[in-house]
């Protein structure tokens, strides 16, 4: 691993990075999902957490966000260790952090504008007029202002994603956690989402952690990448270091297309008489 995570004797990483998670463990019904995962997120960086499906990427993010409580491990935010349960420290962290759910988690009974206003209405003492202005400003940046009276179900998938981002950004967070923001999208839309994240990260100056399994997009957009495999962080470093890494897990993930190509070629080579595309399968009734 290229990055050194904070150990009990070293407090430097915890103080320098905006977010440090170390030794996170989480099991569900006896099945271990996170097995001592570490994550270091430098201030202002875009960190992509890569990994196969089911390796615990979303669980890691949910543990950081406080949606799930880890069985063991420690999370430092801005140099302070967050308590496991609720309390003022956790509440302060939530005011400075936003979470973008894979499913968007929009309030379907609220309009676009009301969705964006909600976190400000419920967590600040701002006047309603100020809240409306700020929410509309964010909607204008994300090109959603003309749809402010519509309900989430009346928006397209991409617009819903932007609305979720607007809701996440309206509180002007220092840290935004993105849980698979490109899941189920075609390559063009994947690019658009990553472009949107990097654009608003520069404009609004937040630190971002993006959980994804879109390797190419992550390597282009991220300042740092981390690879989670079997509950442990196998790699953490720059995209260039990731490309050059000789680690077996990194290679397996990075070279998966090459492996697929080899598998396909081998499968076809071992097939004695390949069926022509127009020939019916023998198992089908003639």
């Amino acid at each position: 691993m290229s990055d050194q995570v904070n150990t009990p004797g070293r407090t430097g990483a915890c103080a320098e990075a905006l977010l440090v998670a170390r030794g996170l463990r989480k099991a569900f019904s006896g099945k271990t999902v996170l097995d001592g995962a570490d994550l270091v997120v430098p201030r202002g960086a875009l960190v992509c957490v890569l990994g196969k499906s089911g390796t615990g990427k979303s669980v890691l993010l949910k543990c950081v966000a406080g949606v799930l409580r880890p069985d063991a491990g420690e999370i430092c935010f801005d140099g302070r260790t967050l308590p496991a349960g609720e309390g003022p420290e956790r509440a302060a962290f939530r005011r400075r952090c936003s979470y973008l759910f894979q499913s968007n988690a929009l309030f379907d009974s609220l309009s676009t504008l009301e969705n964006v206003m909600l976190p400000l209405e419920q967590t600040t003492t701002m006047r309603r007029r100020e809240i409306t202005e700020r929410a509309r400003a964010v909607l204008r940046v994300l090109e959603l202002d003309e749809f402010r009276e519509r309900f989430p179900s009346q928006l397209s998938g991409g617009m819903q994603k932007r609305l979720a981002l607007a809701r996440a950004l309206v509180t002007r967070p220092e840290l935004v956690l993105f849980d698979e923001p490109t899941a189920g999208l075609d390559p063009l839309r994947r690019n658009a989402v990553f472009s949107m994240i990097t654009r608003y990260q520069v404009e609004l100056g937040f630190t971002a952690v993006v959980v994804t399994h879109d390797l190419e997009e992550a390597l282009v957009a991220a300042d740092r990448v981390a690879l989670l495999d079997e509950g442990c962080m196998r790699f953490a470093g720059t995209p260039a270091e990731f490309r050059a890494s000789a680690d077996a897990s990194v290679r397996a993930f990075r070279d998966s297309v090459e492996d697929l190509r080899a598998d396909v070629a081998a499968n076809r080579a071992h097939q004695p008489s390949r069926r022509a595309p127009h020939e019916p399968l023998e198992i089908l009734p003639k």
């Binding site: 966000a65 406080g66 509440a91």
Partner: peptide, 21 residues
């Protein structure tokens, strides 16, 4: 349904007590 579609989790991550809301 709000629990199922992660809306309650979303409230928690926003720092809004879902019981209060």
């Amino acid at each position: 349904i709000q629990r199922n579609s992660e809306q309650i989790d979303a409230l928690e991550t926003m720092g809004v007590d879902p019981r209060r809301y």
